[in-house]
Every structure is written in C-alpha cells, then in structure tokens.
Computed example of a mutant assay.
Amino acid sequence: MTTFEDALRTVEEMDTPDGYKAELIRAKIVVSPWPEPRAFLPMKSLREQLEQRAPQGHTTSAFPVLFSFRAAERAYGPNLYVVDEAVFDSDSRHADAAALSLVAEFTSVSTRDVDWEEKLQVYGQVVPVYLVVDVQGGEIACFSDPSPQGYRAHKTVSFGTPLPVPAPFDCEIDTTVFKTA
C-alpha cells in the first residue's frame, strides 16, 4: 500500500510536460494543464492587487510550488498564492500549506469540479482566504474564515463587480479585467 509520503515523493519527482502540473488529489496523482493564456491578464491583475495588501513577510506568486496538506493527505500546486516567505528557506521539494495566507485557483474545464469541491474542502480547513476565479461561470468567489468543517464565510460576484477580500488583506479586488478571461 502506498503511503501519503510515498505518493508525495513521486509527485515531487515527476517530470511533467511543459504547461502541466502534478498534484495529489484524493490519493491519486493528477496531471492537469496550467491555466489557459486568456487567464494571464486576470491572473496578473489579481497578483498585482494582492501584492499591495499582502501581510508583512508574505509574497505573492504563481511560481510552481507544491503545498502539502498532511492532515488531508493532499498536495496542491495553486495557480496563484500568497505565502510567508520563510517557507522558501527549506531544502524540501514541497512547502507546508500552513504558511499560505491566500490561494487563488483559475478554473478550467478539466479542473472546475476539483477547484469548487475538493480544494474548497481542503483549503477551507487551513488557508485564511481562497479565491475561485470561475472562468467558465464568469464569476469570482471569496471564501474565508477557515474551520475544521470548512469555510464559514463566502461572497461571490460576477466579473466586473468589485470583490471584498477580508483580513489579512482587507481590500477590494477590481475584477473588470476578468471579463476578458
């Protein structure tokens, strides 16, 4: 029987094709594409807006990093994230998800269900803020206030409508450019 540690090591050592990432989802290794090029401008806009409001010592990035959620036996490579910079002082090939202050996933046809269900449940126990940019649905959702049962608060707006993001960011995201996605 394969353990979580064995599966995590396999994901870390995979040589995925350019434009793809490997994650550990529901005890399975899943290879999926990075967001389509049309998500570039919305992702850039979101990153720039979050960089201005990131907590002290945290950085905003889309650099491919695998974050381990040991309690849930999952490992994800978010599309965009805000994380404590200290997490990069490690020799490990994956990072501890507890260092995340925000995760943003941009849905695609192949990842939409995982972003809205699987990741929502797992992130909802650890990550303070989770943004789902639903490219197919034309909306963005903000989930916050994690608990062992999942997020206790959320708000969804259509692209073009400002989205309030709570602490530790306390800002409003301009989603106008998201209409192009």
Rank of each mutant, 00 (worst) to 15 (best):
T60H: 02
L41E: 12
H58G: 06
S101I: 00
A141P: 00
A54W: 09
V103D: 01
V177L: 15
E73T: 07
D134E: 07
I25R: 05
Q49R: 03
L24D: 01
P33A: 14
R93F: 11
V103L: 05
N79W: 02
P148V: 09
K179M: 11
A39T: 15
E172C: 12
G160C: 08
P148A: 09
F4N: 09
Y123H: 04
D91M: 07
P146W: 07
Q49H: 04
V109Y: 04
P37Q: 07
N79M: 02
Y20I: 02
E172N: 11
E172Y: 00
A75V: 10
V135P: 03
S147A: 15
P42R: 07
A54I: 07
G160F: 11
L131V: 05
T175E: 03
E48W: 12
S110D: 13
K21G: 02
C142L: 09
A98N: 10
Q136D: 14
Y151F: 15
L80K: 03
F69W: 04
P148N: 10
E51V: 08
G124Y: 07
G77K: 00
L100P: 03
S108R: 06
M14I: 02
Y130I: 08
H58A: 13
V11M: 06
G124D: 11
E36S: 11
R74L: 00
Y123T: 00
P168R: 04
L100I: 12
A86I: 11
D6R: 09
P128C: 05
R53Y: 13
S92Q: 14
L66E: 04
L120N: 12
A153M: 13
S144E: 08
R47Y: 00
V65C: 13
M14K: 04
K21L: 01
Y76A: 10
L80S: 01
T176Q: 11
Q136M: 10
T16K: 00
Q49D: 02
A153T: 14
P42I: 08
T10P: 00
C171T: 15
P33V: 06
V132G: 04
W34R: 15
T3Q: 09
P42Y: 05
F169G: 02
P162F: 11
T176A: 12
S68W: 00
A27E: 13
E23R: 01
D174G: 05
E13N: 14
V103N: 01
E105R: 01
R47Q: 13
F63W: 09
G124M: 08
F88E: 04
A99E: 08
T3C: 12
A97N: 00
V109H: 11
M1G: 15
V31G: 04
R152L: 15
V129M: 08
V30N: 02
F63N: 11
P55V: 05
Q149E: 15
G57V: 12
